[in-house]
Structure formats: structure tokens, C-alpha cells
Amino acid sequence: MIAIWKKEFIQSFRSVFSLITIAIFIAVSYYLSDFVSKSSIITGIEFAEAGYVSGLVFLIYIMGFLFIFSLFHDTINRETESRTIRFLVTKTSRPAIILGKLLGIFSYWFVCLLASFSIIAFFSHQFYIKTFGSLFVMLTYIVALCVLMSCLIPKRSMSMFAGLLISIAIPTFGLWSLLSDKLWLKVIKYITPYHYMLEGGTWGWLVVLLFAAIMVGISILSLHRRDL
């Protein structure tokens, strides 16, 4: 599992788009922090945290699905499509493959988020650990969904298309459901993470983590019962 984790993590940095993604996160953090640190003298220090992290919150809550699905929609199915998974499955267990891949992607986003928060900390002289944690929980949900889709959809082209649809649909309907009383939107409200993260109170993030764990479980089961 550790070898797969390490390989997936290193491989994450090999594509141009992954480097662009990190650059976007770092640039947003840097310029926003620079702006907020200069303007907080006027707006007051109590609004500073919201200002500093607003860029990252926007990037992850609104664009997070798009970033993650663009980069990792084919994490598992590229292995099954090219049949390199046959080498992996003869050497280690199937759950270890899924968990190794997941940890590799988590590590990439951890580094990305840590770099962004470090820049913010440089300007604000504070590390906003709570916001860091809540954004990472949101990322965990998206990564788990991404890996699940990659397990369930055998073709890479299809998972890319499905990922694009999900990237638009979940943020749109998830956030809309928070403002609407329509019944069908209420159902969506309880299956997307926004309600729990934004209205779920102190422990809402635990529900999101539970969703992520369920999705990881389904991913493992789906790979466990399949001929490769």
C-alpha cells in the first residue's frame, strides 16, 4: 500500500495540469493574503480570517469537484483499462490498491492545501487550523467520490465525462438546495456535503467523513468482486 501511495503521490505532480492547479491555489492564497493584510487595517482584524481563507473556500467548495475530477477521474480505471492492475493485484490485496491510491491523492491535496495555508500564515501570522481541517474534510469527500466513480466506470473517457457532469451538478444543486424548499432539492441537500459543512454545526463534518468512508467502502467492494 505504501509503495502505491508513494507512486500515486509522485505521479500526481507529473502532469502539467496538476502543477497549474497548485500554482492557482498558491497564487490565490498569495494575492488574497497580500490584499487582506493591507486592507485589514481598515476592515478590522475580526474579519481577517474570513478574508484570508475566502479564496481557498471558493476554490474548494465551488471548483474543488472540477479540479479533483479533472486530475484523478481515471485513478483506478486507467489501471484496469491498460491492465497494469494485473501486476498490482498479483502482488498485493485489492483494498491495499484502493487505499494506496486514495492516500496518494490525499497527500497531493494535503501538500497543496498546506502550501496555501502556509502562505496565508506568512501574511496573517496565524495558521487557521480549523478552516484547514474543514476544507480537508470537503476534499476527502470529493476524492472519495472521485475514486468511487473511477472504480464503477470502466472507461476513462466515460469517467471524464461523468466527472465533468458531477463537477457542475453537485456544487450547483448542493448550494441551491440550501436556499430552496423544494422536496427534490431537499433530498439532494442531505446527500451533498454543503448542508453538513455549512449548516451542520460543530459535528456536521463528521457526517461528511462518514459519507467519504462509505464511498471508500463501496469502492473496495466493487473492486473486490470484479474480474480484472
Binding site: T84, R86, K91
Partner: peptide
């Protein structure tokens, strides 16, 4: 089977590797 995979070597019929 996972318990003995470290003692078993396999050349599958279809040999495709990580291109890069």
C-alpha cells in the same frame, strides 16, 4: 490468497507497463 502473494511471482498474459 493475499497472505501468500509475496511468495508468488506472476507474468500475466497481457504485459503492459507504466509508459513513463
Amino acid at each position: 490468497l493475499d497472505r501468500v502473494k509475496h511468495k508468488v511471482g506472476v507474468l500475466p498474459d497481457y504485459t503492459e507497463f507504466y509508459a513513463n
